[in-house]
Design a protein around this nucleic acid. Structure first.
Lengths: 246, 246
DNA sequence: CGATATCTTGAGGAATCTCAATACTAGTGG
DNA sequence: CCACTAGTATTGAGATTCCTCAAGATATCG
């Protein structure tokens, strides 16, 4: 794909070119749109544009003007913050149904990049905010969403500030597995669309330590490493206990 | 004070016993109430109760049912999360105007304790939530608030995951000084109502490391340690640079 | 099937932690 | 007003976890 700018033209398609994308929307029932009734959906639809990004592409640049709000439709992405010297902290991995860009500042304080091929539903912020004022259920939904993200963020602070490498990796795997289960059948084999280095930057560790910890959990027969992107959790209970620091 | 329970009776006073507490409220212009017009304030006032807590007292127990929302009126407090074995991560220090207990779950995922003598304005959650549905400006304000807290939380993740001890301490002092300045005149001498162990649990360090880092910054003539609770920032610029990792 | 990136493993080093002793501070009672 | 006590902060020495640097193994993609 010939797109280099985060808000590129290639891959962008007007909602109407997809017919009634909201009707066919895969995440209609889990995203924020789940709150909306048909006439409201119609208004939202007019603002929405589906965007496609290739694996590795930048979606948001840290510090760029905050012009859009996105809803993840398909794929996975990483959200991160950088220090001047390049140190990176990944603050979250987003999956279908998640929101990206819910800020009320002039600019984004973080960057976002595609981990896989990604489809996003994009809304211009000013228009979306007016809509928000008119649809109270939507505003409430965002508030609930933000508050739950805040709780997750505090969990991550506990992890980063007080957990050991083993506990961090176990927490990550446990949370990622739970998340997959929420939208599919209970599966012990989980897919990790991110690299070891992404995991490291999410857990405040180095790639080497993440790798060693995986090996250690494998040796303890808690995990089975199928290939770098697929892990089978042999002892979900134990993983959870390790994650909780027991 | 004879109060032992987090939702104690002693020290609790009905709003009316204080006359018109909202009119005299010290944080009327900075808290969420700043959004409200007079008739709305009247409705809020009926729900509000002023609570007093002594230094060290518990305000919220981690895991307790989330029955109230609080607005800090006076004093300072710590919000934290615990692991089963007692490891603690302080997720924030609250000051007048800050919200405590903005959750839409059944229970609090965190604890809160008074660092100094504290006054809180307390609202029962169910009633507050109905009020929220009727006062859109209030709901919007909470959303903006939550989103800005989320940004702060991500800053803290960057700190915990990727900064050195020196950078963490500098970040903390810089942020705390900025915060004090926002409500008072620019002062280089800042008050730290929390202990070294609180600072350590906030920064993901040990008390010893925090103490050593203070000493180090003092030796570099960046700080002056007046007493354990008072610090003078001799080089605000340098503190900020160290905090940013330059 | 080969080139390249990613992942794993190893050895040594550094930052921070742990344990222990000393110094300071604040509050208490003589 | 001062000495005493309990809690908090600082300093020191050694241990430990995790990081850094480097090499080898494995997977991915054209």
């Amino acid at each position: 794909m010939g797109k280099t700018s985060p808000i590129g033209q290639t891959g962008e398609r007007a909602c109407k070119t997809l017919g009634h994308p909201c009707d066919a929307c895969e995440i209609r029932h889990i995203g924020v749109c789940a709150e909306l009734k048909d006439p409201e959906i119609e208004r939202v639809r007019r603002l929405a544009r589906i965007q496609q990004y290739a694996k590795g592409q930048s979606i948001i640049e840290q510090g760029a003007p905050a012009e859009f709000l996105y809803n993840v439709v398909r794929g996975a992405l990483r959200v991160f913050r950088l220090l001047a010297d390049g140190r990176r902290q990944i603050t979250g991995f987003l999956r279908p149904g998640d929101l990206l860009g819910l800020v009320f500042n002039e600019s984004y304080a973080y960057g976002a990049e595609a981990l896989t091929e990604v489809s996003l539903c994009r809304f211009p912020r000013p228009e979306f905010e007016s809509l928000l004022a008119e649809i109270p259920t939507l505003e409430r939904r965002l508030l609930v969403e933000a508050s739950s993200e805040l709780t997750q963020a505090q969990d991550q602070m506990l992890l980063l500030g007080r957990k050991t490498a083993k506990e961090r990796v176990a927490s990550f795997l446990s949370a990622w597995a739970n998340r997959a289960e929420r939208r599919g059948p209970p599966a012990t084999t989980i897919e990790l669309p991110m690299s070891r280095s992404d995991i490291a930057d999410y857990l405040g560790l180095t790639t080497e330590t993440v790798s060693r910890t995986f090996t250690q959990l494998k040796a303890a027969r808690i995990l089975k490493l199928i290939d770098p992107t697929h892990v089978e959790i042999l002892q979900p209970q134990t993983i959870y206990q390790v994650a909780s620091g027991e």
